[in-house]
Structures are given as structure tokens and as C-alpha cells.
Amino acid sequence: MIDFFAQQCALFSKGVDGAVKSKNYYLATLNIGQAFNASVMQGLIGWRCGLMSPVESFKKAVRQLSEGVRTIESFSENNCSKDLPIEKAVVISFLVDLPLPTLRINDLRSDRLLDAVLGNGLCRDWDESAWNTGLAQLKQNKRATLAVKTYTAYNHLRKNEGEDLNELIEHAESFFQNRAKDAFFSGGDETDGGGPDNDITIDYRLAAIMKKIGYNGGSAHRWQWS
């Protein structure tokens, strides 16, 4: 599977080159996003299955996306934040200690807005108003009950207001396991661990929060690399 996603990354990277030459914004963002996801999947699978450190794959993913954004901005005035998973790259960049990509949240909503607030809040100011807006939007989706519970658990863990950390983390871990049979996550990106991808991926958002609060317990989702 790792080899497969490495091939996918190479394929989509070639697609980026062709799209940039023709200044095709939408084709470029499509290929950049897919190349990013393929690199992230390599890291997640290697991590979950104990095959390799995810660090280099994650760093490659963030750098690919950051370089892609700069390239697109050289020929287009469109807001890349709307069409690329920059909010996910921000969370992953925190894990591997890379500079956080610039993210404009104006055009994001629902779970994407929540990811953006979470990512920015790891190293920048927490935007409580935007978080509440994103959560309210997510609640409007009848299939997103598990997602609402998940993001609520993230926020409780992030704030850590005297609650039992181990209990909060156990809740978050159980919500991740439940993605295997959840329609909302099964219809999302592979990197989110929905459907059959649940057994081969890790909750990298939970990992980032645990790193932020300095948790050193025994969770399988805990980041273990400096």
C-alpha cells in the first residue's frame, strides 16, 4: 500500500507540472491535493502498521502543498485555501515542526473550518467565534453526528479544563474507531480513516493535540518523533 501511494504521488506530481504549464488552475489544485493526500497516506500507513516513521512522508506532503500554493499564486488570483487541503497541512506541519502554511479561512465552512481553526490554534491564536460557526454548520449535516462528537472531543482535550486526560483521549480514540462504519467519514478523504481505511490510518488531529498539551501516555495515536 505504501508503494501504491508512492506511485500515486509521483503520478499526480507529473499532473501538477502539466497543469502549471498550461496555467490550468483547477487541474493544478486537483493534482496538488491528490499528491498531498498520497504522501500523507504513506506516512499514516507506515505509522499505524509499524513499518516506518511517518516524518519524511509528512514533511514531503507539507512541502509539496506549500510549493504548489506558491506556484499557483504566481499565475492565478484564486483563493487556494478554498480548493486545497491547506487546513490539513497546517495540522501535519505542526507534527513535523515545519512552518505552518498560510491559511485564509474566509471561504471555509463546517469541518474544513474546524480543521482550519484547530490547525491555526496549535501555534497561533484560537478563534472561538470561527470554531462555533464551523460546529454549528457541521451540526446541520444529519450524517455528521460522529464528526460533531469528534470535534467536540478535540476541543475538550485541547482546553484540558481539569478533566481526566486519559478519559478524554479514550473517547476521542473510540470516535476514530467508529469511523469505520460511519457514512460521513467513509465518504471523505482516505486520510480521515473512514471505512476500510480505519485499520491502516491514525488520527493525526488527535496526535497533534496530544503533542500540543504534552501528553505522554500510551495512546497508539500519540506522536512519538521529535
Rank of each mutant, 00 (worst) to 15 (best):
Leu95Thr: 00
Asp83Trp: 12
Ile200Pro: 03
Gly193Val: 03
Val148Leu: 09
Ala116Phe: 05
Glu173Ile: 01
Asn132Lys: 14
Ala61Gly: 09
Arg104Leu: 14
Phe5Ile: 00
Asp182Trp: 04
Lys149Ala: 13
Leu27Trp: 00
Asp111Gln: 10
Ala130Leu: 14
Arg158Thr: 11
Gly33Met: 02
Thr71Trp: 07
Leu103Ser: 06
Ile45Asn: 01
Arg158Cys: 09
Leu30Ser: 11
Met210Lys: 00
Ala136Tyr: 11
Gly121Cys: 07
Val20Asp: 02
Phe94Asn: 10
Leu157Ile: 15
Asp125Phe: 09
Ser226Cys: 12
Trp47Gln: 09
Gly119Gln: 02
Ala172Phe: 07
Ala220Trp: 09
Gly187Cys: 04
Ala207Lys: 01
Leu98Asn: 05
Asp97Ser: 14
Asn141Leu: 11
Pro101Ile: 08
Leu84Ala: 01
Asn155Trp: 13
Arg124Trp: 13
Ile2Ala: 03
Asn160Leu: 12
Arg112Met: 11
Lys23Trp: 01
Asp189Ser: 15
Arg158Ser: 10
Ala10Gln: 04
Phe176Ala: 00
Ile45Phe: 08
Leu157Gly: 03
Asp192Met: 10
Tyr154Asn: 02
Cys123Ala: 15
Lys59Val: 02
Ala10Thr: 13
Ser76Asp: 03
Ile213Asn: 05
Gly134Cys: 05
Ile2Gly: 09
Phe12Met: 11
Ser53Gly: 07
Ser81Lys: 08
Gly50Thr: 09
Asn132Phe: 10
Cys49Gln: 15
Val20Glu: 06
Leu44Ser: 01
Met210Tyr: 00
Ala130Gly: 08
Val40Met: 05
Glu128Trp: 11
Gly134Ile: 11
Trp47Ala: 06
Asp107Met: 08
Ile86Trp: 08
Val91Leu: 06
